[in-house]
């Protein structure tokens, strides 16, 4: 079952179309990356899922049910514009937010205390938020997002504005929550984290979905037949060994260790490449060169822009 399905979502504002027939599928238990340049419509989609706004057309299905008010307690949302009441005490505030999510007082208190112990922030309970550092406040925000054990977590740009220690902490917590069965949607610009933690992605550009699928599949699909080879031997010998069917993209190193990137020509296989060079240099290892999500992101978005022109 999919944790979430957005079906043909269209959302128009007074001046522009924020989402144009966007459909996505978030598999249960997956980390789903919602990618796209600023203003593409990611936040609009996230707000629709959170029932902050409603779609003009289309439907959201959450764990097999059409989205309703009661689903608020199944979702944990950390918006891009996130903050806390500055004048309110940490514990009181966390309790308030938990109860708004439908938790009972007793339950909220127990779970909060457990989280506070784990993050070693119990001493902050009676402090006002304005007394905390930004990094401390970020921890509280994260705890209040996941406290009610939502089946679906939605984090809008979770790594922007967080300090590196918190980024690491949150990344680990997300992986733990995923292992416990939570499905996670995160919208991000941080392409490094996409490759590392996302199982699936959707790329939204100019209000339209332009790409969706498993990260591995997408990288595979965008891969040119490129390999990186490391070997001992002379660069000239290596270059001479390649026929016209292979393109030498780059080469560097010295006699002891050379590194070369080679693109296969039409109809060529890795075996053909190996056969061509194996007698001329001493191979150490060969790796498939997959495009980074960053490359795919930029490539798709620019392509998209060119098509529009």
């Amino acid at each position: 079952m999919n944790a979430l399905e957005a079906k043909h979502i269209t959302k128009k504002y007074a001046e522009h179309v924020a989402l144009d027939d966007v459909s996505i599928q978030v598999p249960e238990g997956a980390v789903f990356g919602l990618l796209g340049p600023n203003g593409a419509g990611k936040t609009s989609l996230i707000r629709i899922i959170n029932q902050i706004t409603g779609p003009d057309e289309g439907e959201i299905v959450l764990f097999g049910e059409s989205l309703q008010a009661k689903h608020v307690s199944n979702i944990g949302y950390l918006p891009e514009e996130r903050g806390l009441y500055k004048k309110m005490k940490v514990g009181e505030q966390a309790m308030y937010l938990a109860q708004l999510k439908g938790m009972r007082k007793q339950e909220a208190k127990q779970k909060l205390e457990a989280w506070f112990e784990r993050f070693e922030i119990m001493a902050w309970w009676n402090k006002k938020v304005e007394e905390l550092s930004k990094g401390m406040a970020q921890k509280i925000q994260f705890v209040t997002t996941v406290l009610h054990e939502p089946k679906l977590l939605i984090l809008d740009e979770p790594f922007s504005g967080f300090d590196p220690i918190n980024v690491e902490l949150i990344r680990n917590e997300l992986m733990r929550l995923k292992d416990e069965g939570a499905s996670i949607i995160l919208s991000t610009h941080n392409m490094g984290s996409v490759e590392e933690i996302c199982d699936n992605i959707a790329l939204i550009n100019k209000s339209k979905k332009v790409l969706e699928g498993r990260v591995d599949d997408i990288r595979e699909a965008h891969a040119h037949q490129e390999y990186e080879l490391r070997f001992k031997g002379t660069a000239i010998a290596f270059a001479n060994a390649l026929w016209t069917n292979f393109e030498l993209l780059s080469q560097e190193g010295d006699q002891d260790l050379q590194r070369a990137r080679v693109r296969l020509g039409e109809g060529m296989k890795l075996n053909d490449l190996l056969r061509a060079v194996v007698d001329h240099v001493e191979l150490i290892d060969v790796n498939r060169n997959l495009p980074s999500m960053n490359d795919i992101f930029i490539q798709t978005v620019t392509q998209n822009a060119e098509e529009h022109e």
Partner: peptide
């Protein structure tokens, strides 16, 4: 204004209608 400038409002309206 406080809720807006503290950036808490979006968290709240994800739990309760505006």
């Amino acid at each position: 204004i406080e809720e807006k400038s503290n950036r808490i409002v979006e968290v709240i309206v994800s739990s309760i209608k505006p």
